[in-house]
């Protein structure tokens, strides 16, 4: 009987939740198609189809689509999805609604890498920042884990360690920027976060990191469910908390590090999307991750679409756009009691 009633309760929720996932995927597809169509040069639906399936190198529309729109769309979807998953993992790991994946020092490390690169090597082209950003992110995350990770009952420390390392790195950045005007010029554009410079080559280079990150994320998902009951309960259920932290942390670093290398720091998606997903998704971490990925990709593509529509001036970028829109959305959600507590 007990099993019966629980299965009834389970199936009672199921159609509802799959409906929301379906809506999310539909919205993602629509925003992806729209971002192929819209832009300075409007491309017709028929032309998009022709460009995708029978590419003609002499048609301007086809070149725009393959060289600019498609990489940009793929980049936005990938980054949004990864940030969504990373955010869900981070909030589950720390059980703190304030936790954003940048908290592991990834964004600060990447930013410091970029700033040092502009000063030491004189780089100014954002396409050259990938490796500097990736290396900076990895170093910062390693430092955070050395200080706060891999300890039983260590999530509080992980947060503090992450905040300390981030603060230290941002202080170094501030100092360097005040000394070097030329790097301030590069930095203040890079920090907006956007997909202006994404190419297929960049996506292909970063893809392996993303795939490993996603695999680790889903491997950690099951144990993270147990962690939601509290660390001691999780331990008594046989979860090795220290190892789980390391696994989840590695996934977050891989996902965020590649994102920040591709598009610069995008703060809001990782923070807000898990809260959005928690309203509609079941509590299972793996479902939550999938929902977060879909919602994150949709939001990112929409933000990029709005940012480059030119409505808000030529400086607007997807990262800033998502933050400016996302803030009021989050507040509205909180006020309508739609946000479920962690």
């Amino acid at each position: 009987m007990a099993a019966d009633s629980s299965s009834v309760a389970f199936s009672g929720h199921r159609p509802h939740r799959l409906m929301w996932l379906g809506i999310g995927i539909l919205a993602m597809l629509i925003s992806a198609l729209l971002s192929l169509r819209l832009g300075v040069r409007l491309i017709g639906w028929a032309d998009i189809g022709r460009a995708l399936f029978s590419f003609d190198p002499d048609t301007a529309d086809h070149i725009v689509l393959w060289q600019i729109r498609l990489p940009r769309m793929v980049g936005a979807l990938l980054c949004g999805g990864c940030l969504g998953v990373a955010g869900a993992l981070m909030q589950a790991l720390t059980r703190n609604p304030l936790a954003d994946p940048g908290l592991l020092g990834v964004n600060a490390g990447a930013a410091l890498g970029v700033v040092i690169c502009t000063i030491a090597l004189g780089l100014t082209d954002p396409a050259q920042f990938i490796w500097a950003a990736l290396a900076g992110a990895a170093i910062a995350a390693a430092l955070v884990f050395a200080l706060g990770g891999n300890a039983p009952s260590g999530t509080g420390r992980l947060i503090l360690a992450g905040a300390a390392v981030s603060a230290l790195f941002y202080a170094l950045i501030r100092g360097l920027l005040l000394v070097s005007r030329s790097s301030l010029e590069v930095y203040r554009v890079w920090v907006l976060g956007g997909f202006d410079n994404v190419t297929f080559y960049m996506v292909a280079t970063l893809m392996p990191f993303l795939i490993v990150g996603l695999v680790l994320a889903f491997a950690a998902g099951f144990s993270l469910n147990a962690l939601q009951l509290g660390e001691s309960t999780a331990q008594s259920l046989g979860v090795r908390v220290g190892f789980l932290q390391l696994l989840t942390g590695a996934a977050i670093v891989l996902l965020c590090g590649t994102t920040v290398a591709m598009a610069g720091p995008i703060a809001f998606i990782g923070l807000i999307v898990p809260h959005l997903a928690r309203v509609t998704a079941p509590t299972d971490m793996r479902w939550l991750s999938i929902y977060s990925a879909v919602y994150g990709a949709t939001l990112m593509a929409l933000a990029d679409l709005i940012a480059r529509s030119g409505m808000f001036g030529s400086n607007m970028q997807a990262g800033v756009m998502s933050a400016i829109i996302g803030g009021p959305v989050l507040i509205w959600l909180v006020r309508s009691k739609g946000v479920r507590k962690l």
């Binding site: 703060a267 809001f268 807000i272 809260h275 933050a323 803030g327 009021p328 989050l330 909180v334």
Partner: peptide, 15 residues
């Protein structure tokens, strides 16, 4: 949560 929302929107606007 409300504070995060406000802070990040304003921070992005400053950027």
């Amino acid at each position: 949560l409300v504070g995060i929302g406000a802070s990040l929107t304003l921070g992005a606007t400053s950027d």
